[in-house]
């Protein structure tokens, strides 16, 4: 928490440090990677313990695991078509990784790896590379017709082609910026409101009124927590569904 008055260190929470002691430091294993590891284990645990009872009438954990499985599978098939089944494990991994990362980031003292542009951009680049490879494999060189819509006047080609290429390349950027910006904004706001609480409560000028006034930012933070939970789901969902839409384009090439 920012201790100094009038100086809110809203960005310090995103600073990377090494985790797991000297061993982690020796391989530059950051706390961000530790959270990735934890969320990966959580996802695997959910799937493992969710599938283990094999009950016909599922318990809570099993229902959760199956809801995730069926929901994402349905999303893949709805958005991509029958070919979507092949991409289901990838979309599932992506969705769960982003979702659990967002949610874990909301816990106190944790770290939100989805608030790092390097992470979100890497994920988005993975998506776009996969999309391009899939499109090339299915359609071969015909894929490049994607950058010049049929029926457009040939004269405009020098403009349309760069625009389409930029538009295509902007996909991973928009995908990563959206997730990154949402996560950063939420956590900056948490930090700012939390700092307000401390400032008001500790303020000499406001005295005991400050303590009462500190309830305001406190309430805001509680409301924000609810909103951020929604955002965590929404952003993971948007990330996954845009991946599906891009895959649809790659498979069907419009």
């Amino acid at each position: 928490m920012a201790a100094e008055e009038h100086a809110i260190d809203a960005l310090g929470q995103f600073k990377l440090t090494t985790a797991l002691g000297p061993l982690g430091a020796s391989v530059n294993f950051t706390q961000s990677n530790l959270m990735m590891l934890i969320s990966g284990l959580l996802i695997l645990g959910l799937m493992y313990f969710g599938a283990r009872p094999q009950a016909v009438v599922p318990g809570r954990l099993q229902a959760l695991a199956e809801m995730a499985y069926e929901g994402i599978r349905k999303m893949c098939i709805d958005q991509i078509g029958d070919e979507g089944k092949a991409f289901f494990p990838f979309v599932f991994t992506l969705f769960m990784f982003v979702l659990i990362g967002n949610l874990l980031g909301l816990l106190p003292f944790s770290f939100t790896y989805t608030s790092h542009i390097a992470v979100t951009l890497s994920l988005a680049m993975t998506v776009i590379v996969l999309v391009t490879v899939v499109a090339l494999r299915i359609h071969g060189l015909h894929f490049f017709s994607y950058f010049f819509p049929a029926g457009a006047p040939k004269l405009l080609a020098p403009i349309i082609i760069p625009v389409e290429i930029i538009s295509y390349l902007s996909r991973p950027v928009s995908l990563s910026i959206r997730l990154f910006a949402n996560m950063v904004a939420g956590h900056v706001m948490f930090e700012v409101f939390a700092s307000f609480i401390l400032m008001m409560a500790a303020s000499h000028a406001l005295g005991s009124f400050g303590v009462v006034g500190a309830v305001g930012p406190m309430v805001l933070n509680v409301l924000l927590m609810g909103f951020e939970l929604l955002v965590a789901f929404l952003q993971a969902y948007v990330f996954a569904i845009l991946t599906c839409i891009y895959l649809h384009d790659a498979v069907h090439l419009h």
Partner: peptide, 27 residues
């Protein structure tokens, strides 16, 4: 068929900004 990605006006509004910004960033 549920083709509704996120069609809330807020979602579309945020997406519009991000799309524009990211295209310019790439360019």
């Amino acid at each position: 068929k549920s083709g509704a990605a996120d069609n809330s006006s807020l979602g579309v509004g945020l997406r519009v900004g991000v799309e524009l910004v990211s295209a310019i960033v790439v360019a």
